[in-house]
Design a binder for these strands. Structure first.
Lengths: 200, 200
DNA sequence: GGAGCAAGACGGCTCGTCCCGTCCTGCTCC
DNA sequence: GGAGCAGGACGGGACGAGCCGTCTTGCTCC
C-alpha cells in the first residue's frame, strides 16, 4: 500500500529541475497563469512531460516550488526582519517592501498563480503555509514580541491579530486589485494598527 | 464595429436562465468548482450549450450572475445595515453575520468560485465590484459616516481604511483557510479597529 | 542493465462553435 | 382577422482544437 514507486531522487537532474521552475515562472509572467499549460512548460524547459509528472503531482505544486526556489536562493528558511528598535519605522519599512514586491510582475504573477491554486486546494495551501508562510509569520511575530517587551506595544496585544490587521488589507487589495496599493497605504495601515495596540 | 450580433433579450427564456444559474450553484457546491464543466451545467439545467454561450461570455460571468441572483432576490440593489446608534454593537452584528455566511457551504462555495475567476480576470472583477461590491461598500461607509457624525469615530478617520481593516482579515482567513473564522475573531477585529479610530 | 532522461504518440476530456429540427412570436397579406 | 411566413431562441448533439496525464521509444549516464 505504499506509493507505487518512488523515483530515486539522487539520480534526479538538477538541470531539468531548475529549467522547469524557471520556465514556469517565465510563462506565467508572459502569458498569464490561465494560459500556461504543462506542455508549454515542458517545451520551454526542454524537458519531457514525464520528467515533470515524475517529480510533481500537479501544476500547482510546480508553481509552489517555482516560487520557493525564487524566495530562498541562499539560506535555508532563515528569515530576519529589520529591528532598529523603532517598531513603527520597522513596520513601515517591511510593509512598504511588501507593497513594492507586489508591484513587480516577475514576483507578483507567480504568486497570483499560486493563490489561484491554493484557494481550491487545501492540501497545497497547507504545504505553502508550512514551507513559506510559517517561517515568515514566525519572524514577524518575533519582531512584534520584541516590541511588546520594549513597551512599544500593549502587553496584552494578540500578535496574530496585529499581523492580520497589517497584512490582510495589503493582501486583499493586491489580490482583488480593488484600490491603489501604495507606500502611503502601507503607512496608513501601520499608523492605524499601532494606534489600536498602543501600550497603556 | 459593433458587437457581431446581439441576441434579442426580449425573447430570452427566463426559465432557462434560472435553470442555468441554479445548476451552476448546485454543481459548485456538489463537485467543487474545479470539477464543474460548462457541459455539466447545461446538462443539469436541461439546456443546450449554445443557450449558455449566447448569454454569457465566460464561465466566470455565469458564476457571478448565479451569485447576484442569490443575493438580491427581492429589492433592487437596496442595501441597509443595522443602525441602533451603538456603532460597536452594530459592527459586531454585521461582522458576525459575515462570518456566519462564510460558514455556509451553499453560500461559500459559489463565492469561492467567483474569487477564483476574479483573481485572474480584471474585467470580471470590475463587473463584480460594480454590481455587488460597490452598493454594499457604500452602505457600510454610510453607517460609519453616521457614527462619525455621532462622535463615535474619530472625525478624521479614513472610512475606507476602517472598512479594509475590518473586512480584509475576515476575507483573507476565509479564502486561505489559514485560521479559525469565529464570532470571537470578528469581535476582536471590531474591538481593535474601534480602538484605533477612537475619537479624540 | 537499471534508472532517469527528451521526445512525442495516445486516449480521454473539455471547450467553444456549428448545425439540426422544433417552437414561439410578431408581421404580412388576403 | 385568420393563415401563412420569417426570424430567432430553444434543446440536443456533432465537431475540431487543445490540454491533460499516461505510455512508449530510444538515448545517456552511472
Amino acid at each position: 500500500m505504499s506509493t507505487p514507486k518512488a523515483p530515486d531522487s539522487r539520480r534526479r537532474s538538477e538541470r531539468s529541475r531548475q529549467a522547469i521552475l524557471s520556465a514556469t515562472r517565465e510563462l506565467i509572467v508572459e502569458l498569464g497563469y490561465p494560459r500556461v499549460t504543462v506542455e508549454a512548460i515542458a517545451a520551454r524547459a526542454g524537458v519531457g512531460k514525464q520528467t515533470l509528472y515524475r517529480w510533481w503531482p500537479t501544476k500547482g505544486a510546480v508553481v509552489l516550488d517555482s516560487i520557493l526556489a525564487l524566495s530562498s536562493p541562499d539560506a535555508e528558511g532563515q528569515v530576519t526582519l529589520p529591528d532598529t528598535g523603532d517598531l513603527e519605522a520597522d513596520l513601515r519599512t517591511v510593509l512598504r517592501a511588501t507593497v513594492a514586491e507586489f508591484a513587480d510582475p516577475a514576483f507578483e504573477a507567480p504568486i497570483r498563480a499560486l493563490n489561484t491554486e491554493i484557494i481550491n486546494d487545501a492540501e497545497l495551501a497547507a504545504a505553502y503555509r508550512e514551507r513559506l508562510g510559517a517561517p515568515v509569520e514566525q519572524a514577524k511575530r518575533d519582531r512584534l514580541r520584541a516590541a511588546q517587551r520594549a513597551g512599544q506595544l500593549a502587553a496584552d496585544a494578540d500578535l496574530d491579530l496585529v499581523l492580520d490587521l497589517l497584512y490582510a488589507p495589503v493582501y486583499r487589495r493586491w489580490l482583488l486589485r480593488d484600490g491603489p496599493l501604495t507606500p502611503e497605504y502601507a503607512d496608513a495601515l501601520v499608523t492605524a494598527v499601532l494606534a489600536a495596540f498602543r501600550p497603556a
